[in-house]
């Protein structure tokens, strides 16, 4: 039983990160029906920029670990949001009117480009976050040793998701994003500036991905230029699992995928962990073809 609860917290922490990244995929997909494969590299870039800012500006020394990290998070979000918007401008916007899969290939190209940019700028070696910003001890909760950082990661990702949920559900811009996701044409007729919505999506989605990268850097301490692929694939899986285009779906899908992985590793086999996760995904899709929370779309006639 102890094993079960420990693995559950493992899964929740990883799942929280998957969910944050998955939100970026799902938001872009919702509005543009584009799988933004370069999103995973924006996540990597977030981790690297976070490291640069952290070491060059000594924020945590000046402001203390808490406010320093919060400010750092906002700076990373801002920078990655700008990169995200630029990416859209350069690689996707020229392809708005062309076949959908052309933009996918452009996204793949952008992913290769960004990954290698990071490699050339920062070098191919692992980069290491400074130690001791987040506490490295474990606390005992009901007889379980749970690392503090894991709780911090869990809280942060939950907080970010709540903020996004509020933004999407309660604000005017959020409503516009939802409207554009349902029907772009109708949204435009209703006086919604769809281009602004797209820009918004390419600011918010990458910002979340970037902050997830920072979180990964702070949590695990080690980052490398290829780490985006693995996380990206998992997060994309999570987005699909929850029903792509659906924001609560991405959150549920991410958390669920993290837990499935941890449980698969614990009770079946570690080496087959990813295969187990994909098997579960395929099974779910066979029975619910549009994901867990995805809406049933009637075939157009």
């Amino acid at each position: 039983m102890e094993q079960f609860f420990l693995q559950l917290t493992n899964g929740l922490a990883v799942g929280g990160i998957y969910a944050l990244i998955a939100l970026g995929y799902t938001m872009v997909y919702g509005v543009l029906k584009l799988i933004n494969f370069a999103h995973s590299d924006l996540f990597t870039l977030g981790a690297y920029l976070g490291l640069t800012l952290l070491t060059s500006m000594a924020l945590t020394d000046r402001l203390g670990p808490f406010w320093g990290t919060v400010l750092l998070a906002f700076m990373v979000m801002l920078l990655i949001a700008i990169v995200g918007a630029l990416l859209d401008r350069v690689a996707y916007r020229p392809l708005r009117q062309s076949p959908r899969l052309s933009a996918v290939v452009s996204a793949l190209g952008a992913s290769i480009f960004l990954q290698n940019t990071v490699m050339l700028v920062y070098g191919a070696r692992f980069q290491v976050y400074p130690q001791g910003i987040l506490p490295s001890t474990a606390i005992r909760v009901m007889g379980l040793d749970i690392p503090m950082v894991r709780l911090i990661v869990l809280c942060t990702s939950t907080l970010m998701m709540l903020a996004l949920f509020f933004f999407i559900q309660k604000t005017k811009t959020g409503t516009a994003i939802r409207a554009a996701a349902i029907d772009q044409g109708a949204a435009r007729l209703m006086g919604i500036d769809v281009n602004r919505v797209i820009l918004m999506v390419f600011l918010v989605g990458p910002a979340l991905g970037g902050v997830a990268g920072l979180l990964v850097g702070l949590y695990y301490g080690q980052i490398n230029f290829t780490m985006g692929w693995g996380y990206g694939l998992k997060a994309f899986t999570a987005a699909i699992l929850g029903g792509i285009g659906n924001i609560p779906g991405a959150m549920v899908g991410g958390i669920l995928l993290g837990v499935i992985e941890a449980m698969g590793a614990a009770y079946l086999s570690i080496a087959w962990k990813d295969a187990i996760a994909f098997c579960v995904l395929i099974l779910i899709l066979i029975f619910r073809p549009t994901g867990l929370l995805g809406e049933r779309v009637a075939e157009k006639v």
Binding site: Q3, N10, A13, V14, R150, I270, A271, K273
Partner: peptide, 14 residues
């Protein structure tokens, strides 16, 4: 384990 991941706590716990 699966290389290039970052969370190995599930494996360590097991």
């Amino acid at each position: 384990l699966t290389p290039k991941e970052q969370d190995y706590t599930a494996i360590l716990t097991k």
